[in-house]
Design a protein around this nucleic acid. Structure first.
Lengths: 192, 192
DNA sequence: GAAGCCGGCTAATGACATTAGCTTTAAAGC
DNA sequence: GCTTTAAAGCTAATGTCATTAGCCGGCTTC
């Protein structure tokens, strides 16, 4: 009987695909094992358990989001960069409806890869804010505002929280416009 | 053997208390039954199942949030009302860490109570926006922006997503200040 | 070619949700 | 006050899932 030849990255990547297909809430070790063609307990040779898998998935998704945010920001600044990065973030969440909620789990402090990925994502926002003259301590608040607004929108959208027929894309544009306005007069920014 | 004397409202209320104590994710029919002093299957006399219970919990939490937002808004207008309602929303989420995530589940269209509660909450925000001269279609975008920003903040905060020591209360104030600025120059508002 | 690591397996256990069907309480009706 | 009956509780059975223990055989390494 030949072996399946699994390893941790393969298992985590397949879990990500499965989560995108069936939803993060329906991601189950049983379904994952079936998908990979092995018996359920075999997965324990690669991941410590369901909880640890979710944590790895969070790390993967965080790294991917950071990567796409970075790519969107390159060669842009100011409102242009803000829009591009916000759009990239939302696009990722829509394209990966299973990975995205996984990424909401806070990093395990013992996983330096995960922590670094989170910091890469945040660094993209810091860089944009520098273009608005927002640096130092006030930038911490501004980064939190960006994350709150964009994550909030994306998660409400995914949950079907927007009932009305009004175009959701336009609402997102307005939200990002609002961030732009707020950052332009953010308290404590450098005067120019 | 005397009866427990349960009914649906009692069961749902106790579920809400339990969820606040152990977290929404750990809310289980087994734990709820133990708490109520009955056998697990007995709960099915009052709720259709775990999923239906979560839905009822969503309706309860939505109604409570709407109530607290309304109360916070009374006698206030403009930025004052905006701050008060945003603070009330966040305070509810912090006080009820189990109920709050339950409320993210979209209403069952067949539950008029739930739908009405959601509309009451949204109506509070519409009323505030009227004070900014934001009405009609643009107000739909503005309400979504409010919900996104506040819900996003609250859920990131609950997930432990804000790593840095920087004061979280201040960040929330800045976020709400940002909403105030954005609403003051919201595209499509009535000119005054 | 032998040794041994390690990736796969089966079996067993335990939590939970759900359904079926029984029993008995407690209230309604006579 | 007795009978009736709807429903609130129960036990038992089933199925899914996660987890742990322990076995076995294939691939790599010497």
């Amino acid at each position: 009987m030949p072996r399946a030849g699994l390893n941790q990255p393969t298992v985590v990547r397949e879990a990500a695909r499965l989560a995108d297909e069936v939803g993060f809430g329906q991601l189950t070790l049983a379904a994952l094992a079936a998908r990979l063609g092995v018996a359920l307990p075999s997965l324990y040779k690669h991941v410590k358990g369901a909880d640890a898998l979710a944590q790895k998935l969070s790390a993967l998704a965080t790294a991917e989001i950071a990567e796409e945010m970075s790519a969107a920001a390159v060669g842009r600044a100011g409102a242009d960069a803000l829009r591009a990065v916000a759009n990239a973030y939302r696009a990722y969440a829509r394209r990966h409806p299973g990975r995205y909620p996984a990424a909401q789990r806070a990093p395990d402090p013992a996983d330096p890869e995960h922590l670094a990925a989170g910091e890469r994502a945040v660094a993209v926002v810091y860089a944009i804010l520098r273009g608005y003259g927002v640096t130092g301590e006030p930038a911490v608040d501004a980064v939190r505002a960006f994350r709150s607004a964009v994550h909030g929108f994306v998660s409400l959208e995914a949950a079907g929280g927007f009932g009305l027929p009004r175009d959701v894309d336009r609402s997102f544009e307005r939200l990002v416009d609002g961030l732009d306005i707020a950052f332009r007069s953010w308290p404590g920014r450098d005067q120019s």
